[in-house]
Design a protein around this nucleic acid. Structure first.
Lengths: 193, 193, 193, 193
DNA sequence: CATGAATGAGCTTTCATTCAT
DNA sequence: AATGAATGAAAGCTCATTCAT
C-alpha cells in the first residue's frame, strides 16, 4: 500500500513536470522534487526515465479507457455514442490539461525511440471508435462504404487536434462542449447542405 | 550560390536525422556527418540546434504552402478544393516521409520550449482550409452554421492523423489517395446514410 | 563537514592548477583530477569555472587579511607596523607560492571579465596599509603631506612586485626578509618627518 | 613598405582588442575585423595568436624604452632622473591607456605559458632605473646600502601599481603628474643620503 | 599577397544513474 | 526502503588555424 502510493505520487509528479517542459527537457531530479522524494527513490519504482513515461501512459490510458467505456455505455444509439465520445474526450482534456498534453505530445514524440513499446493502450482507445462505427453500420445507420479503420483515425485526429488547440490556447474562444458537438456533427452529417 | 547549397544540404541532412531519431536524440555531429560537413560548419549557417529546426520548418513549410496553393487553384468548386487539399497533403507526405515526420511531430513537440517562435507558417497552412470553407459558405454550398475556425482544425487533424499513420505503418494497407478521398467525403457528406 | 572538506579540497586543487597554467589554460577536468573528484562534482560546489576563482580569492584573501591583522596588532609603533606588513606579506608569499601567484596574477587579469565582482577583499587588504599611515600621521610620526590613498598603493605595488619576482625567480638571490626590510626602509625614511 | 604598414595595423588592432577583453577572451577574428583585414591575413604576418602578443610587446616596449631613454637624458642629476622616470612612465600610460593595460596585465599573465619568451625588453626597461641608482650611488648622492636590484623593482612596482589604478579608475581623483611626484619623493627621501 | 569558408579538436557543463550510508 | 552526493559519459558550441581560390 505504501509502495503504491509513492509510485503514484511519482507518476503524478512526472505528469506535471513533463507537461511543463516536455519529456527531454525534464530532469529526473525535478520529478523527484515535485514528488517530494529523493532522486534515488525514483529508481526503486522505475527502471529509468523512459520507464516513467511508459508507465505513466499505461496507467493513465487505462483510466481514460475505463472512463470512456462507461460514458459510451450510457448511450444506445451509435450516433449518440459518437457524440458522446467527442464530448467525453474533450471533457477529460479539460479536466486534466497537463495529463492531456503529455499523452498527446510527449508519448507520440517519444514513441520514435521506444520502438519496442507497442502502445497497445492507444490502439484500444482508438478501437472504441471503430466499434461504434461497426455497430452503426450493423444497425444500418452509417454508410457501408465507410472504412472503420480509416474513419476511427480521422475522427480521433479531428478531436485530438481541437483538444490540443484548446489546451494550448491562452484564451478559450469556444467552449469545449460546443466544439465537441461541432466535430461529431461534421462527421455524422457532413458539411454540404 | 555556394552558401545556399551548403545551407540546404545541412537542412536536408537535418530532416533525415531528426526523422530518424527525433530532435532531442539527434546530435549536431550526426547532422554534420550526414551533410558531409564539419561540426563547426553547421554553426556558420545556423545559430544553434534549435535554429536548424526552426529554419527547417520555415523553409519546408513555405514550399508546402506554395505547392498546396497551386494545387487548390486548379479547382473552382470548393467541394473539389477540399478533396484536393486532402489529396495534396497526403501526396506530399507520401513523397517526403521523413520531412513529414519532422514537420508533424518534432515541431509540435518542440513548440513547448520555443515559445518565442510563433509558427506563422502553420497558421497560414491551416488558413488555406478555412478560406475554402468560407468560400463554400459564400457560394451557398456549405452549411452556414459551420465554424471555419473549428472546421479547419478538425479537417486538418483528421488528415494529419491519417498521414501520420500512413508514414509510420510498416505495410500500407490502403492507398494514400483512397484515404484522402474517404476523409474529405466524411467531412463533405457525413457518415450517416 | 563532508561538504566543507570537499569544497576546500577543490579550492586547493584549483590553486595548484591555476598557478601552474593560469586560469584560462586550466581545464576543469584538471582541477577535478587534482582534487581527486569527478568533473561533475565540481559543479555541486561551484556554479562554474569563474566561480571557483572568485571563491578561491574570497576564501584565501580572508585568511590573508586575518593573518595580516593579527601580525600588525603585535606592533604598536606605526613605523614597526609598516615593516611588519612588508615582512608578513612576503612571508605569506614565501609559504604559499602557488596561492600567491594566483592571487597576484590570475585574479588581476581575470578581473576584466568579472566586472561584476567588485573585489572588496583586495580593497580591505590595501586599507590595512592606509590605516597604518593615517595612524602614523595622527601620532605625528609621518609627514602630513603624504596622501594615504597614493602611498598605500605605492607601498603595496613595491612589495607586490618584489614578491612576484621572488616567486617567479628560479634562484633566490636575496632572502625574502632582507627584501622586506629594504622596501619598508625606503618608504619609512621617505615618510617619516 | 606595404608589409610594414599592415603589420603595424594588425598590432594596433590587437592592442585595442586585448585591452578591451584580455588576451584569452580576444578572438583572432576580432583583431582581424578591427584591423580591417581577413582572418587569414593575420597569419601572413604572425605565426599564431601568441606571436601577436609577443611582437606587440617587443615593438611597443622598444618605443617605450626609447622614449624613456631620451627623457632621462634631459636630466643630469640622478635625483631628477628618478623623478623624470616616474613622470614619463605615467605620462606614457596616460597617453596610451589601452597599450598600458596590455603591457601591464596581459604580458605578465601570459608569461606563464610563454616560458620560452624571456622578456628581455622588460628587463631593459627596469635596468634604466637601476642605472640611475648606480649612477646616483657613484656620485655619492644615494645611500650605498641601497640594493639597486631590489630598489629598481620596488620603485617600478610602486609606479606600475599607481598607473594601473589610474588607468582602471573611472574618475581620476589625483592628477597623474602629482602622483608621479609623490612616488618619486617617497623613494628619493628614502634613498638620498 | 589576400581572402574567408571550412575545419575539428577540445572545452565547459549537464544530468541519468549508482551506491554507500 | 530511502537518501542524495558522487559519478562520468556525452553533447553543444567555439575559435585558432588552414588552404583553395
Amino acid at each position: 500500500m505504501r509502495d503504491f502510493k509513492k509510485r503514484e505520487k511519482i507518476l503524478q509528479a512526472a505528469v506535471k513536470v513533463f507537461a511543463r517542459k516536455g519529456f527531454y527537457q525534464s530532469k529526473v531530479s525535478e520529478i523527484a522534487r515535485e514528488a517530494e522524494v529523493a532522486d534515488g527513490t525514483i529508481y526503486l519504482y522505475f527502471h529509468n526515465k523512459d520507464d516513467i513515461l511508459i508507465n505513466l501512459f499505461e496507467v493513465e490510458m487505462t483510466k481514460v479507457i475505463d472512463e470512456m467505456r462507461s460514458q459510451i455505455a450510457k448511450e444506445t444509439d451509435p450516433r449518440k455514442k459518437i457524440e458522446q465520445f467527442a464530448r467525453t474526450h474533450m471533457g477529460i482534456v479539460k479536466k486534466n490539461k497537463e495529463l492531456a498534453e503529455v499523452l498527446q505530445v510527449e508519448v507520440r514524440q517519444s514513441s520514435k525511440f521506444m520502438k519496442e513499446y507497442d502502445n497497445r493502450k492507444f490502439t484500444q482507445y482508438l478501437n472504441l471508435i471503430s466499434e461504434i462505427i461497426v455497430e452503426g453500420q450493423g444497425k444500418g445507420l452509417f454508410r457501408q462504404n465507410i472504412n472503420p479503420v480509416i474513419a476511427k483515425r480521422a475522427f480521433f485526429g479531428a478531436i485530438d487536434e481541437l483538444s490540443r488547440l484548446w489546451v494550448l490556447a491562452p484564451k478559450k474562444k469556444y467552449s469545449i462542449q460546443t466544439t465537441a458537438k461541432q466535430i461529431s456533427d461534421y462527421f455524422l452529417i457532413g458539411m454540404v447542405r
